[in-house]
């Protein structure tokens, strides 16, 4: 049987546990986002709308090197909704560690790709506003260059200035075995 005093202590614990959990996670996020490239907008630290360095304001540029040695731009605009690329993309953009960039690069290499009439590479399943007749299948790239950048606003010159915060080159399997 719980005593009244015990019940009070139990009540206090039940009242405190969620606020303590929220504060612990947010403090950890604050430390991690201040010391790494984790965007303050993500990670449950309540840093949304505090900085231009938000996940949605960051850019991800991808170039693929074909087996012929050509370097082609990759259309990264619709990656968020791509079934296999969406997860690695949002994670690499929000916190571009070498491991996350590596995962995104590998996902791009493993993805069926096509080249459109402007020589831009697109995931084969993301042909929105693109005529499939005007695309050609692309063999798995031998290399993928990834670059994540953030934007800074220079209010005096009224310009946005891109700043690269992470880069990585991921090489495909040279044997072509996937």
């Amino acid at each position: 049987m719980t005593t009244g005093r015990g019940a009070t202590r139990r009540d206090r614990w039940l009242i405190a546990v969620v606020p303590v959990l929220l504060a612990s996670v947010a403090l950890t996020q604050m430390v991690v986002a201040s010391t790494t490239e984790l965007t303050p907008w993500r990670g449950a630290g309540f840093g949304m709308f505090s900085t231009m360095d938000g996940h949605d304001l960051r850019g991800v540029r991808i170039e693929v090197v074909t087996e012929d040695g050509d370097t082609l731009p990759f259309n990264a605009r619709r990656l968020r909704g791509a079934p296999r690329l969406g997860g690695p993309f949002v994670q690499a953009r929000a916190w571009p560690t070498p491991t996350r960039l590596e995962r995104l690069g590998e996902a791009v290499i493993d993805e069926p790709l096509v080249v459109d009439e402007d020589d831009v590479v697109i995931p084969a399943e993301q042909l929105v506003d693109v005529d499939p007749q005007l695309t050609e299948p692309l063999a798995p790239p031998v290399e993928v260059h990834l670059q994540v950048h953030r934007l800074r606003l220079d209010r005096d010159s009224e310009t946005v200035v891109p700043e690269v915060i992470a880069e990585r080159t991921v090489r495909g399997d040279p044997t072509g075995s996937g």
């Binding site: 709308f49 505090s50 900085t51 209010r155």
Partner: peptide
């Protein structure tokens, strides 16, 4: 009360920590 207060504490501290909020850069953008 704790949860609302803590959410706004962290939201406020973040805005004070990052220079591009207080100098108006984010809102201008």
């Amino acid at each position: 009360r704790w949860l609302i207060g803590l959410v706004f504490v962290f939201a406020t501290v973040w805005k004070l920590l990052v220079p591009d909020f207080v100098d108006g850069s984010l809102l201008t953008y």
